[in-house]
Structure formats: C-alpha cells, structure tokens
Computed example of a mutant assay.
Amino acid sequence: MTEALPPTTAAETPLDRGPHRTLAEASRERRDVVTGEVMAEERLIRFVAGPDGTVVPDLARKLPGRGIWVAADRASVETAARKNLFARSAKAKLVAPKDLADQVDRLLLRRVLDGLGLAKRAGDLISGFEKVSTALTSGKAAWLIEASDGAPDGRRKILAVARKSPRQPRMMAAFSAEELGLALGGENVIHTAFLAGRGADRWTFEVLRLSGFRPLLPESWREEP
C-alpha cells in the first residue's frame, strides 16, 4: 500500500481566522442557503439566475444579478437543487438542472487545470523528477502534483523525497499525464511542483473547492503495495 502525502481538505484552509479584523474581510462572507451558516466566499459557490430562469454557476463571482451562495461540496449543491432552495432564496421561479453538481465539478476542474497553465507561464510551476525533487528538498514546493496514471515506482520515489522535505507539500493527482501535458505544453507530464507564493495560495482556494466534489487522489492508489 502506497503511503501518499495527505491531500488538502477544506479543514486545512487558512480562511478560518476567527474574529474579523477589517470590514473588508467581513464583506467577503456570505450565507450558505442550505445550512444558513455564514462563511468566507472562498468556501462557497456563487449561483445566479440565467436569462431563461435556469440556475447558473458563477465560479468567478462576476456574473450580474443577485448571488445565491452554496457551500462548495457536491452534497450541498445537490440538496439546494433538490429542495428548490435557489428559487426560495431568489423569491422567483428558478429551475436547477439535474446535473448542476456535475456542472460545477467540471467547471472547477477546468479552473484548476487552467491555473496550472497560468502558473507555468508565470514561472511558479516546475516539472520533471529532478527539478521537482530539488524543489521538495529545499522546501520551496507548496504542492506536489502527480499524474494520476504515473508509474507507481516513480511515485514512490518522489513521495519519499517529499516526506523528507522541510516544508511538507500538499498533494493532488486529479489529472492524467496527458491532461497535464496539454495544460503545461509538454508530453506526458508526471511530476510537477507548484512553488510556494501568492500564486500557489490563489490556486489552493480553487483546489479546496474542487475537493468538495471529487477526491484529489485516485482511490486505486490505496491498493498499491
């Protein structure tokens, strides 16, 4: 059984800071329509009413109209759709598509993958076993991103390096080598590191939301010797 580094979970987000220190921080909180809990925007998905009365996900929080906020996890979105909470919140007739949670999942996955491409162009992302190993050893890697279909032997070796890092990186493997290669302009990208910094912090918020809709590590990894 391969002992992977633990993936990031919503419980690890740095957003839970206790009492607000500024009005700006307070203004970035919204109420989840499912539980009524007030939480930071980054832990929620914004929805708006489309022109045809359909509920539309607004992951970038830029679409016009009154926002309806739901916790960033599959169960919450499905509950909001099933109980007609979008219409109740908007006080208007709204229809939530049956595959709304799947829509959010796909959109989040694309945002996370596109974020890797942006990080690559900004110089915040490095790939290749040796380069990633160096970043891990020096404690510069905030994230270790492994191809979901990479060879177990190579994965065991890079994980061994990561465990000895002075800064334990978070880990995800939601993309295949081909998907990573297309995003990063290479072929069959297996090992990637997201260097610590503001870019990694912004990307982490997207990954945290994605983790509410799908596991960040393949279940099959747990069965490896």
Rank of each mutant, 00 (worst) to 15 (best):
L85H: 08
V95K: 15
L208K: 00
A200N: 04
S220N: 13
L23P: 00
L217D: 01
L59P: 01
V132D: 08
R82A: 14
L107C: 05
E179Y: 11
W203P: 01
G150S: 12
R110Q: 14
A72F: 15
E187L: 14
G53E: 03
P64S: 10
R198K: 12
R31W: 02
E3F: 10
R198A: 14
R198G: 09
P218H: 14
T54A: 14
D52P: 08
G18M: 07
G197Y: 02
G150K: 08
D114I: 01
V207R: 01
D201K: 15
K120R: 11
L108P: 02
D52H: 10
L94A: 05
A160Q: 11
K91G: 09
G150H: 10
R88C: 05
G117R: 00
K140N: 15
E130G: 09
A174M: 11
I190H: 06
L136Y: 12
A60C: 12
L94M: 11
R46V: 05
A4Y: 00
G186W: 01
T2N: 05
L63V: 06
L118V: 12
V48L: 03
A101N: 10
L208H: 00
L182N: 15
A40C: 11
F47I: 08
L216A: 04
D58H: 05
A141P: 04
A49N: 05
D114R: 08
A122T: 00
K98W: 12
S133G: 10
G154T: 04
A71G: 14
K93T: 15
P64W: 05
L208V: 06
V189G: 03
L23W: 12
L23D: 04
A162K: 06
E130P: 03
M39H: 05
P7S: 05
G185M: 03
S127I: 07
A75C: 06
Q103T: 15
W203E: 03
W221L: 09
G36M: 06
G186V: 05
S138K: 14
V112Y: 03
P14C: 06
R46F: 04
R43T: 14
K157T: 13
D99Q: 07
V161A: 06
L109P: 01
V33T: 10
A177V: 08
V38T: 09
A160W: 05
D102S: 13
I190Y: 10
P7H: 12
Q168G: 08
R43N: 10
L23F: 13
A24W: 00
L108F: 04
M1F: 14
E37K: 15
A193W: 01
W143Y: 07
E37I: 15
R121S: 12
T2D: 02
P6K: 11
K93L: 11
P215W: 01
L5F: 04
L108S: 02
L195T: 04
G212N: 13
S176P: 10
L195Q: 07
A72T: 07
P64R: 06
R66M: 10
D201A: 15
D99L: 12
K131H: 09
E37H: 14
R121G: 09
R167S: 15
E41P: 00
G117L: 01
N84I: 01
P51W: 08
F213Q: 02
H191M: 07
P218D: 10
Q168T: 14
D58L: 06
T134S: 14
L44Q: 12
P97K: 01
A4P: 01
